[in-house]
């Protein structure tokens, strides 16, 4: 599904991703952990195609196509979804209208006509239930005045509606209370399928109790320095990052 080879990227002349490799197969869940500033959000932004970030080397193929050649909106239409670490507010634009526009743009790209109003409403209702999002939130302006946790939940709601093939969740668990965490994780689990993959960026092992990953990677200074199964997350929780940093320095 996603193959990243020796990716190098940075911003404002500073290299942040320094030779990153990752292979995500269909249906897999990969967790990426790593200390603050190690480049996790940068990686997400680069994959999503944010223009401020400059790719200086490497290749990324997504479902057999060259991801780096695509504009951000085409990446999205091809099935890549990013749940933002800091979701953006768009005053005056209702969530519903926003999603309807997005769905119809994605459909148009695939050569399908706009979705019927009643099918759309049905879809919204169904996905709202999936992430237990209050009806009033769906009708409000995109993220405007949402609490931190509500914004995160809204990201998952959008993901559920847009049904991507690859979803990158950038610290979606940060700022969620315990119940919300469970609900969001549940939502993700219900969306797991053999042709949908996830990259879950998190600082906390607890999320991975709910969303059980196939692989855990540690990102440090722009490269993956360690990979393992879900038990690696437990080890990190227990010992912190120092031992890994030491390993890197020694190597």
């Amino acid at each position: 599904m996603l193959t990243i080879k020796n990716l190098r990227a940075g911003i404002e002349g500073k290299e942040i991703i320094k030779g990153f490799n990752l292979e995500v197969k269909a249906g897999e869940v990969h967790a990426i952990m790593g200390p603050n500033g190690s480049g996790k959000s940068t990686l997400s932004n680069v994959l999503a195609g944010r223009e401020d970030y400059i790719v200086s080397g490497g290749e990324v193929s997504f479902n057999g196509k060259n991801l780096l050649d695509m504009s951000p909106e085409v990446r999205a239409r091809e099935g890549l979804f990013l749940a933002f670490q800091y979701p953006i507010e768009i005053p005056g634009v209702s969530n519903i209208n926003f999603l309807k526009t997005a769905i119809n743009e994605i459909r148009a790209y695939k050569g399908i006509g706009p979705m019927e109003a009643k099918d759309f409403l049905k879809l919204i209702k169904e996905k709202q239930a999936l992430v237990e999002l209050q009806g009033s939130l769906a009708g409000r302006s995109v993220n405007e005045g949402f609490s931190g946790g509500e914004k995160k939940r809204n990201e998952i709601f959008q993901m559920a509606v847009l049904e991507p093939t690859l979803a990158i969740l950038d610290e979606t668990d940060s700022g969620l209370d315990i119940d919300a965490l469970r609900i969001v994780a549940n939502g993700v689990n219900k969306l797991r399928s053999e042709n949908r993959s996830f990259i879950v960026i998190t600082h906390y092992q607890r999320l991975l109790d709910y969303i059980v990953p196939d692989f855990v990677h540690v990102l440090y200074d722009g490269v993956i320095v360690k990979s393992g199964g879900k038990e690696l997350a437990l080890e990190l929780e227990e010992k912190g990052y120092d031992w890994i940093k030491k390993e890197v320095v020694e190597a």
């Binding site: 999503a48 195609g49 944010r50 223009e51 504009s71 951000p72 909106e73 990446r75 999205a76 239409r77 979804f81 990013l82 933002f84 979701p87 953006i88 507010e89 768009i90 005053p91 005056g92 634009v93 209208n97 926003f98 999603l99 526009t101 997005a102 769905i103 743009e105 994605i106 790209y109 302006s141 959008q158 847009l162």
Partner: peptide, 25 residues
């Protein structure tokens, strides 16, 4: 805001339309 829209599959022109219309609502 524009990037957020694009990440959801909406191109720049449409994104500006949405944002500006929201602003003028």
């Amino acid at each position: 805001q524009i990037f957020y829209c694009k990440q959801r599959g909406i191109d720049t022109e449409k994104a500006i339309g949405l944002i500006v219309n929201g602003y003028c609502k």
